[in-house]
């Protein structure tokens, strides 16, 4: 995004105290619906993403699978991951659309030191604001899904915006628009969850007893609602089993920084207190120090 979206209410902002929320309006949280069970790996979403967001092409990489490149890239925000998993004597060919998960409790935003560089809109979309981004890469450490990427030319971090520019004017994201199979849908998160539950029920009756919705509570849920046929094994799809903001990042922000501030301010207070109570140590001789 060129800037944070005009007119979009900001719920929270990186490295900022309360008061950065821009309005009292409570917008419904939006979400992508991804039904991995009917994804055919056509990559139309990849192309649509690159096209709508004007992302210059990135060199693809052949590693013996259909996957376009090994991981996400600062200029490639949407990647179908192809996984081959042996289950007993059969093989599952699993495809999953990898992109920013737009967590309700975003680790990137928690870790970011630049005020306003990562914002979460009232509708749940997490966005990077390049004007404020300093390209330090700390968001990458905070992200449990390994999504933000450093863009060497611009020196900024980049990732999927959930097409906030489209969503804010009532359009569905480009990837959703391009999907030919009905794998992808977009709407209010509650509606997407309802659809997903319905689909999971179907899968349960059709030979996938472990089918489940992936909406991990460790990050407060995500604005990407993913249906997995093997819901008990999200790692087969390259998804962490129980993701959360790293404990180190939470400790760093919530404990270490306040403690450090108090320690350093305490040192100043102690010095002043020492000066007032004990006083300076001066030579007692008649000869005064220069």
């Amino acid at each position: 995004m060129a800037t944070t979206q005009q007119g979009m209410e900001i719920r929270q902002s990186s490295a900022s105290l309360r008061g950065t929320a821009t309005g009292a309006r409570k917008l419904p949280v939006v979400a992508k619906y991804i039904d991995t069970t009917i994804c055919i790996g056509c990559k139309a979403c990849e192309v649509a993403c690159a096209e709508w967001n004007d992302l210059p092409p990135v060199q693809t990489e052949q590693r013996g699978s259909y996957q376009t490149m090994p991981t996400l890239h600062a200029q490639y925000w949407n990647l179908i991951k192809f996984n081959e998993i042996e289950i007993g004597d059969s093989l599952a060919w699993l495809m999953r659309k990898d992109q920013c998960m737009h967590c309700a409790d975003p680790g990137c935003l928690r870790a970011c030191p630049a005020p306003g560089a990562i914002v979460q809109y009232e509708n749940g979309i997490v966005d990077v604001n390049p004007d404020a981004c300093i390209g330090c890469g700390l968001c990458e450490t905070g992200c449990p899904f390994d999504v933000p990427r450093y863009h060497a030319r611009t020196g900024k971090m980049a990732k999927c915006t959930l097409c906030v520019d489209r969503a804010s004017v009532g359009l569905e994201p480009a990837c959703i628009k391009a999907c030919p199979t009905g794998t992808l849908h977009f709407g209010n998160k509650n509606a997407m969850l309802e659809m997903a539950e319905h689909r999971v029920d179907q899968l349960h009756k059709n030979g996938f007893p472990a089918a489940a919705v992936y909406d991990p509570p460790g990050v407060g849920g995500t604005s990407v609602v993913t249906i997995l046929a093997y819901g008990d094994h999200p790692e087969w799809y390259g998804l962490p089993k129980d993701p959360s903001v790293p404990a180190s990042v939470r400790f760093w922000k919530r404990v270490l920084k306040p403690v450090g501030l108090i320690a350093m301010a305490g040192a100043v207070v102690a010095a002043v207190g020492h000066y007032l109570t004990v006083g300076p140590k001066e030579p007692k001789d008649q000869e005064r120090p220069s």
Partner: peptide, 20 residues
């Protein structure tokens, strides 16, 4: 943080606390 605390002590002892 350790350096921050130590430098306060260093500056204080080198100036106000010990004239000369």
């Amino acid at each position: 943080i350790l350096f921050g605390v130590a430098i306060v002590a260093h500056i204080y002892l080198g100036t106000a606390a010990e004239p000369g």
